[in-house]
Write a protein that binds this DNA or RNA. Structure first.
Lengths: 234, 234
DNA sequence: GGCACTTGTTAAAAAGCTGTTAATCAAACC
DNA sequence: GGTTTGATTAACAGCTTTTTAACAAGTGCC
């Protein structure tokens, strides 16, 4: 598996250096920033698997930094380091969405354990995460979302943008239920609840397109969604 | 969302009672066992979203309990409570796969925060990967709520949305009473108290579906609710 | 046993989804 | 301007699920 990337935000030179050394020895790839502003910049430049944020820092503090991060990357996991052990601070940290909250002085190995717990989970997620660039074999069909194309027996057909999006969603959930709600939200936008039948018309179209191979079908699950049934990949 | 179920394993009567009270006030459904053996039994009987394990207990200690749990349910999340603050213990806890490790005396609210963090994550994960959600073996049947399917002897049947919901509720309370009031509230909404007989009709339908295996039954408890009786998982 | 309830079951009604085709709308293209 | 292309809406038939209704059967209590 890939090396995991940690963003460490800590203004104390000694502690920062110590932690960076220690975590790198343990095989993690650490980027150390000394203030919130440059940490935000770093987050724009590259992606990380976890943030380790000090709370008391000159300029923007760790809480505000967390808020900014939350706004941009709602699912980005982070934990707090702090010397303050006020209970209110702790609760506030969790309210901001922190995964954990360590009070100094803490044990390096304990921090490492907590980091590993969090990474273990996100690694689990990435393992199964559908790849955007993937191509799909659906029975005798070959579907290439990046080219908006589907082929069968040397015959190639170019899909429309929406046909492509919806078929991709179905593929990502193939042989499982793709919930109508989820699909509609992905395709038509979050806040807009949907009354029209456009989505169904596309299902109908896709069925027509896929009907050359009887092993491939789009099955309806009443009131819930659709399943793209395909034989197990050869 | 469904109410979340916590398995609390704690031999200290005072602390156990206190925690149970507190967590239930916060809207969690808590089952409290006083020793490892009966905790394991409980895990066979019904399913939980999180385990909170004391380490020092008479008989089997928390570490051994965790090992047993890991063997049966590799993804089941749990955290440790302990009075010992030996570093080796802590590390050992994490090695066993614990999500967290709290040393007594700890603050109730902090425990609550940590519980919420863990539950938040597993909820999130299940949203993206419904196939990771629990599956149930009911005698010769296999029930997969994420696919709304129940199988017996290679024969698969797709359930309707409500059938699925109700069977899932029964499974989550299998071998114990599912209160009618609770079920109706879960399925038909909070404030609306329910006069119709729709729920009973579903029970009747589920009985018909489950009647291939005589070891599986839905038993009525007069004026209280229903019990899904299933043999202990093999 | 008699009474007031709850429960089990079936069938039919009601509610509301889905599949499809054709018509309409909107934007992009000549 | 006229045409083409793709997306959305309209319409309607057909269908599935859920609820209601009805009645038989069961339960607990006096």
């Amino acid at each position: 598996m890939n090396q995991q990337r940690i963003l460490l935000v800590e203004d104390d030179m000694n502690l920062g250096f110590l932690l960076m050394e220690f975590l790198e020895l343990e095989g993690l790839q650490v980027t150390w920033r000394k203030d919130a502003r440059s940490a935000m910049q770093e987050l724009q430049k590259q992606s990380f698997d976890l943030g380790v944020l000090d709370i008391m820092m000159p300029g923007m503090d760790g809480f505000s930094l967390a808020k900014h991060i939350r706004a941009k990357l709602p699912n980005f996991p982070f934990l707090f380091l702090t010397a303050r052990l006020l209970k209110e601070d702790k609760l506030r940290g969790y309210q901001l969405g922190a995964e954990d909250y360590l009070t100094k002085p803490f044990d390096e190995e304990e921090l490492l354990c907590k980091i590993r717990v969090i990474l273990r989970r996100s690694a689990q997620q990435q393992q199964t995460f559908p790849q955007l660039a993937a191509k799909y074999q659906l029975g005798r069909y070959h579907f290439d979302p990046s080219r908006q194309e589907i082929c069968i027996d040397e015959e190639t057909r170019r899909l429309t943008e929406k046909e492509n999006e919806i078929l991709l969603l179905l593929c990502q959930h193939r042989n499982r239920i793709l919930k109508r709600e989820l699909a509609v939200q992905r395709i038509y936008g979050k806040d807009d609840y949907f009354l029209g039948r456009s989505f169904d018309v596309f299902i109908s179209r896709l069925r027509k397109i896929l009907r050359e191979d009887p092993e491939v079908s789009i099955e309806n699950v009443f009131k819930v969604g659709f399943i793209l049934n395909v034989p197990a990949a050869s």
